[in-house]
Write a protein that binds this DNA or RNA. Structure first.
Length: 772
DNA sequence: TTTAGGCATTAGCCTAAGGAAGT
DNA sequence: ACTTCCTTAGGCTAATGCCT
């Protein structure tokens, strides 16, 4: 009888010169079992004829056997040679012969999971002989029996950042749903503490604890780049053979590290949050553990005070505090994991592959893996990953994107906003846009009619859209089903990823003209909506990509019939929807005097204020200017109180001028988008970083203020890190905050109301001149 | 190894122009 | 009349972060 298992991870080994797939599985009781499959041979396809292949490559020692097969190459029937090699590492040798190969760039274990159509959430049915698999198949998807522990280490350092070569691990916490523990060699007390003799003993006790508790998932936060490599390096230095259940911890990759242990899915949850989860679910600007925890699970606990770390060896209370923070970090890591798990699990069910591989995928990889599955199912060859040369070529090509309507600055009332539901996905499906259906007529890209043949990309995308509608329908009945909610979200994310993938330089199904056709049709449809709206007498105010804003007067019904008129002419599954009605909206001018795009504010009929693009929604503006702008917009749009708005500006300027502004309100945040050393221009945040002498790296958010300086100073000369300014009581530069922060954020708003810059800035009665 | 493209905005960097001072 | 030094206006572009 066949038994049921779930897959933890997979790799291969070589036994007697033959590759053997190893599947690390768990049953429903989380018992780890390893199964072997020696029936699966590495292979790829070669685009050549059988005779010349036999003469040239066929006889080489690493070729196991080969055969002629019929496949489709971007929709065209073609005969290729399927070559099996003795070992997976022989596959690149075929490529090196100079013949054009297909599917030679898929890692062996991934190939296995793809061909068997299985993943960590598949219910595996295994017929076996001892540990050797005779037959394996998926009985559909189920819930992986997770036994998870979150892990976090605390290290000692006197520097800004610990160095694994010299700085020891002080404590490590492991938190599961069952219990919380902290292993430490410090003199700490607490009920969770497991005492270790020294750091070496800590590492041994850690491996023992993790192994004996039969965890099959280990969660960390940034553990791919920090905790796991640190444990690995300290183990090496201290001569500890760090293994879990007999399998070593491996750190793969140089620049982007990945930590792996056979038999346990190591998930660095930060990867998943950064790549996938944050796209629709997080507002926080920084993805630090604390910031994500506070938004996701409402955790409010602060950070350990690292300034005191040098005392930790002879201060029992401090050591105990450090351990409790360590446990807390693992606890919130585990909570975050369970918060994002529904999304991760649904993604895994759709795409297959292992849980830990899925957790590291970007949207591009997700889409690609899904299309690969479908390609296999319909006998299409999977295109190769692009070469460096191709990537370089692709990176220099830029398509025309969306259309944005030029608004006229002003204050408007009774606005309707309509938008296309999933514009690009629905265009790709309805127009059959795909590298496998593209043809050129007189140099212009056209696409095969759907009735002739549906392209691979539209076929998968259509399925994604259909699955999403199904899930949405079910969600209407099962309102609290969190799995369904996650499924709807995952499918939306995937659907939206297809268009980007067509134009993504590293995509297997990259198609410049497909991406270009998609945006061109998008522009056409939006412009059609605009002119239709104008034809029925609506005044169009704005439009961006897939939406149109117009004044509808008082007849909401007219808007609805307008929408259904448009819809009757649209090809399926395209659809125009009403987004909402708004009471009042403001569009302002840009620097050049014409209406600014992607910058507006509206209030709906319930008094909710919506602000887009303004300084107040940008991180790199001082809080004092952002808050003021928000309040001004509120006064004007919600309260209809222009005098009040003016008053707010006056007060803020007065506060700044008199030196009474709060330091916190003056802080400006800017993120380092590259390594500090690789900048060519000294901008504000770079200068603040350089002057501080502190170490920051790519991705860090720099918090700084503009301090008082000499007249000849550049702005960057006056930028000082917030913490340094506060500690040393450095004075801020009122002129900068008034002229470069506060005024620029409100002048264009008052301009719309008929006030010129001079009215606001100076030299007339009934103005703010008193403050200058 | 980061799905796409459109846009506003600030300020640094560079050059040319023009003025002041000196010869 | 010519050179040198300094300031300033203006163009270009690096850089960031938003919008859909």
């Amino acid at each position: 009888m066949a038994e049921e298992y779930f897959l933890v991870d997979a790799d291969y080994t070589v036994i007697d010169g033959s590759p053997v797939i190893r599947l690390f599985c768990v049953n429903i009781d989380s018992e780890l079992r390893i199964f072997y499959d020696n029936t699966f041979k590495p292979y790829c396809y070669v685009d050549t004829d059988i005779d010349s292949f036999s003469k040239t490559i066929g006889g080489l020692s690493f070729v196991d056997h080969f055969e002629k097969v019929e496949k489709y190459n971007l929709g065209k029937k073609s005969e290729v040679i399927k070559v099996y090699t003795k070992l997976p590492e022989d596959i690149p040798k075929i490529k090196q012969t100079g013949l054009s190969t297909y599917e030679a760039d898929i890692p062996f274990y991934k190939r296995y999971l793809l061909d068997k159509d299985i993943g960590s959430h598949s219910i595996l049915e295994i017929e076996r002989n001892g540990d050797y698999i005779k037959k394996i198949s998926s009985k559909g998807v189920g819930e992986f029996p997770i036994r998870a522990a979150a892990l976090d280490i605390e290290t000692y350092t006197k520097r800004a950042f610990p160095n694994a070569k010299v700085d020891p691990i002080l404590a490590v916490s492991i938190v599961s749903s069952k219990e919380s523990k902290c292993i430490t060699w410090l003199d700490a007390e607490g009920e969770n503490i497991i005492k270790a003799k020294d750091e070496k003993d800590l590492l041994l006790k850690l491996s023992e604890y993790l192994s004996s508790n039969k965890f099959n998932v280990i969660i960390g936060y940034n553990s791919d780049s920090f905790d796991m490599p640190y444990i690995h390096e300290r183990s090496r230095i201290l001569g500890v053979d760090f293994r879990l259940n007999g399998f070593e911890l491996k750190i793969k990759g140089e620049k982007r590290k990945v930590a792996e242990i056979n038999g346990i899915a190591h998930i660095d949850i930060l990867n998943f949050i950064r790549h996938i989860y944050s796209i629709y679910n997080l507002k926080t600007e920084t993805l630090t553990l604390r910031a994500v925890a506070s938004e996701l699970i409402g955790d409010k606990k602060g950070e350990f005070d690292w300034d005191k770390i040098t005392e930790v060896f002879n201060n029992r209370e401090l050591a105990s505090t450090l351990c409790s923070y360590c446990v807390q970090d693992s606890k919130i890591t585990l909570d975050i994991f369970y918060a994002v798990l529904p999304l991760l699990a649904e993604l895994n069910k759709l795409v297959g592959q292992t849980l830990s591989d899925i957790s590291r995928m970007t949207t591009g990889a997700v889409v690609e893996n899904l299309v690969m599955k479908k390609a296999l199912a319909i006998n299409e060859l999977i295109p190769n990953k692009p070469s460096d040369f191709q990537i370089n070529d692709r990176m220099h090509k830029v398509n025309t994107g969306a259309f944005v309507f030029q608004p006229t600055p002003g204050l408007y009332e009774n606005i309707a906003v309509v938008d296309f539901r999933s514009l690009y996905p629905s265009i790709i499906v309805s127009h059959n846009i795909c590298p496998s259906t593209i043809k050129y007529v007189g140099g212009k890209a056209e696409f095969l009619d759907k009735k002739e043949r549906v392209g691979l990309i539209p076929a998968v995308l259509n399925e994604v859209i259909r699955l999403r509608f199904d899930a949405k329908d079910r969600l209407k009945i099962e309102k609290d089903n969190s799995r369904l909610k996650a499924r709807v979200l995952v499918l939306k994310l995937i659907a939206n990823g297809f268009y980007g993938n067509l134009g993504y330089y590293n995509s297997r199904w990259y198609c410049f003209d497909c991406a270009g056709a998609t945006t061109a049709l998008g522009r056409q449809y939006v412009q059609q909506v605009i002119s239709s709206a104008q034809n029925v007498g609506f005044k169009v105010l704005y439009a961006d990509t897939d939406s149109a804003f117009f004044e509808f007067g008082v007849e909401k019904d007219k808007v609805n019939s307008f929408i259904s008129d448009i819809n009757s002419s649209l090809p399926k599954p395209m659809e125009l929807e009403l987004q909402d009605f708004y009471l009042r909206a403001i569009f302002v001018s840009a620097k050049g005097g014409i209406g600014a795009k992607k910058k507006y504010a509206m209030v709906d009929f319930n008094g909710n204020l919506l602000i887009k693009g303004f300084q107040s929604v940008r991180r790199d503006w001082a809080i004092i200017a952002k808050n003021l702008q928000k309040e001004v917009l509120k006064k004007i749009l919600v309260d209809n109180d222009i005098e009040g708005a003016m008053g707010l500006v006056k007060n803020t300027i007065k506060t700044i001028k008199e030196g009474n502004a709060n330091m916190e309100d003056l802080a400006i945040l800017t993120r380092l988008r590259k390594d500090p050393s690789s900048y060519t221009q000294t901008s504000r945040h770079i200068s603040a970083v350089e002057k501080s002498g502190m170490k920051f790296s790519n991705g860090d958010t720099i918090k700084y203020i503009i301090a008082k300086g000499k007249d000849s100073d550049r702005v960057s000369d006056k930028a000082v890190l917030y913490d340094i300014a506060r500690k040393n009581g450095i004075k801020y530069d009122p002129d900068y905050y008034i002229n470069k922060q506060v005024l620029p954020s409100v002048l264009h708003i008052f301009e719309v109301l008929g006030y010129s810059d001079e009215d606001i800035v100076g030299r007339r009665d009934n103005s703010l001149s008193g403050f200058f």
